[in-house]
Structure formats: structure tokens, C-alpha cells
Design a protein around this nucleic acid. Sequence first.
DNA 1: TCTGGGGTCCTAGGACCC
DNA 2: TCTGGGGTCCTAGGACCC
Length: 394
Amino acid sequence: MKFILHVDMNSFFASVEELQDPSYVNKPIAVSGRTKRSVVASANYIARAKGVKAAMPVFMAQHLCPGLIIAIPHFNLYHEYSERFVQIISEKFTNNVEIGSIDECYVDITSLVNKKNDPVEIAVRIQKAILKDTGLKCSIGIANNKFLAKMGSDYKKPLGITTMWQNEIQKKLWPQPVENMLWIGKSSAELLKQHNIQTISDIAKDENKVLLEQLLDKNWYVHYQHANGSGDDELDYSHNTPKSIGSSETFLHDTNDFVEIKEKLVELTKDVLRRLNHHELKARTISVNIKTIDFKTHNKSFTLRDYTNDFDKVIVTITNLYQQFFLNNLVRLVGISLSNLIDDSELSISSELFDDYMKQSKPMIEKISEDDIVNMINKKFSKNIINMANIKLK
DNA sequence: TCTGGGGTCCTAGGACCC
DNA sequence: TCTGGGGTCCTAGGACCC
């Protein structure tokens, strides 16, 4: 049996802005852009009391909450505070921390729990340490698995500490509406409610299993187990490299002017390649996505023969992809994304291995076609290269 | 006054290989 | 002639998270 905490920073961006500018304290704050198309990224509790929520258009937030102060986001600062709160936990308590996102993490405190230290006391000490060192409030959920811990941290905010033990789920988890459940979003919640599955207790019921299987994807059983209080308790400590890197921007005015769109694509490509190089990665799949004024999104992607971080190659592909859209509508947003990423160093090691192998195996080379070589390089690993050469030798 | 931007994962069809 | 089943990769779209 493990003891897992979920630590969730309360209205993180807005709280950091309050620390920077004391004149914001006790006033309603929303962090967002200032264009007419901006939406709220984070709001403090004074603004939330008036109905302001994340992802709400700014004009709507200002309508609900007269006098709302719009704070322009400082993402570098949020990243610094994010590192600090994780550092406090790993230095003063335990290194068993899985970073969930910029404002949340899981902590496995199993090894810290004993007769003198119960899980709730440990959570209280973590909450106090973060508040003292950073000035930021957090809520903590305590449970035996990640799902219940996360549902616990959501239960009481701000500065909440909530246990979600197995014998408490009937009281604390089951009465909640289905949309409160992790991984059940808007569309699944609507579907479930149409079939009279209203609360988490309905997801937990045996007699609804057949219905759940029909309504949800293949993960229906995971949701059923979550609702009954079981779930994954293994934290992921891997230092994760990104699987894709993208950038997008909504135009202030809808457009179909190719010159304007091309300028934006160049800007986005430069930004994405800068971040790709920062991670020392190269990419093979290039995607362009657009949102038209009817709010439909469309994607075009192309996978190159070789991994690249070269601006000219990427922008040529992106321009070609964009021109394959046959649009009747004006464009609201354009974005680009690079995926199929590989570590630059891994790539150079496999090409060196490949070259070495080819030098030693000159007689084989004539038996291998150019396409085979391209395939080998794309497979990344020397093992495949050797297998391929051996097959050809037969 | 309509509705951001950063991601991950899943599905489903078609191409292609054995 | 008409025909299998398993597997991987690519592309497009959508659900979900913060």
C-alpha cells in the first residue's frame, strides 16, 4: 500500500502576479492577453467568486466582474516558481516527485510514513514549507493512488488538505457529477448524462458496465476502476523529452491574405525551431494546422525522409502543406507543429555506427538499394541496419 | 464584442510488407 | 481468377489535460 500526495498550486499564475505587484492584493485579477480575442488563463478567488473562469473570453469576464484587473502573463516567472515549489518538496521531504504540469505534482511519501509521521501531518508540513518559501498557497490530496490523490486536491481550495481513502469515496467522490472526474471531459460527460449516468457513483455501479463500454472508448474500464477507488500508484520519474513542439497564433482579424499568413508561418517556424534546438532535438514530421471562422480545425502533415532542424527545409514543407488546403472560409488561427522527434546525439551515434558497419561490409553494399539505406537510417537503430544487411546477404 | 495556446493520446482508413 | 491475416507507418481528426 502506497501513500501518494497530489500538490496543486492555487490559481497559480494569478497568485504569482499578486506577489509581483502588491497593489493587486484584495482585488479581482485575471491573467490574460489584452486583445479582444484573449481568454482568461488564470483568475484569483475574488474574480472567481464573480463567475470568472479559466478559458473564458476576457470581454465576458469583464462583463461579469466590473473592475477586473487584467494582468499580462509572465511565463518565465511562472516557470521559475514552478521549479522552486518542486525543489522545496524534493530537498526537504522526498525526491519521489512526478511533475504533472507547471502547477502540480505527485509525491510518493510511502517511505516517510511511520508511527510518528502520518500522511496528513506530512502534507501539512509541505503546504507550510511552500507557503513560507514562496508565498504561494497549494491544495493537497492524500490517497493510495494517483487518481484519488488528484481528486482530493480538487476537493477543497485554497489551502485545502483532503484525504481520499477507500472508505471515504462514498461520501467524498461518489456524489460528484461525472464531469468532475479526471479524463471525463465535456463531450463524454454529455454522452453519459444522456444515458442517465449523472454522478461518479453511477460510473462505479456494476450494472452500468455494459453501458459504459458502449459509450466510452477502450479506457472505459479504467474509469470504472477509478470510480471504485482503484488506480495507478506508480509515479513516473523519467525526465521526459517532448513528443512534439508546436506554436500557434490567432489573428486579430480573420484573413485569407497569403502574404500575411506566410509571414506568420515564418514567425512560428522560427519560434518552434528555436525550442527544438534548445532541447537538442531534430524532427521528421511537420504539420500545419488552421482554424477557420466556423471554428473547424484542419491539419496537413508530411513526414520527411530525414530528421531535420533546418529552417529552409521546414519552411518549404510548411508552405507546401498550407497551399494544399482548399479553403472557402477565412482563417482564424494558424499553427505549426514538429513531431517524430529524435535526440540529436542519438542520431549522430546511429549514423556513425552505420558508416562503420558499411566500411566493414563493402561487399554487401552492392546488394542494398538506395531505398533500403533510407529505410535503415529512418529506423534509427544499428540493430535494424545489421538485420537488413543480413537479410540482403541471404 | 464569441470562444488562447501548450501539449498527449486514441481512432480509423489506406498503403505497404511478409 | 480471387484470395487470408498480421504488422507497421502515415495522415486526419478529435478528446482531454492545464
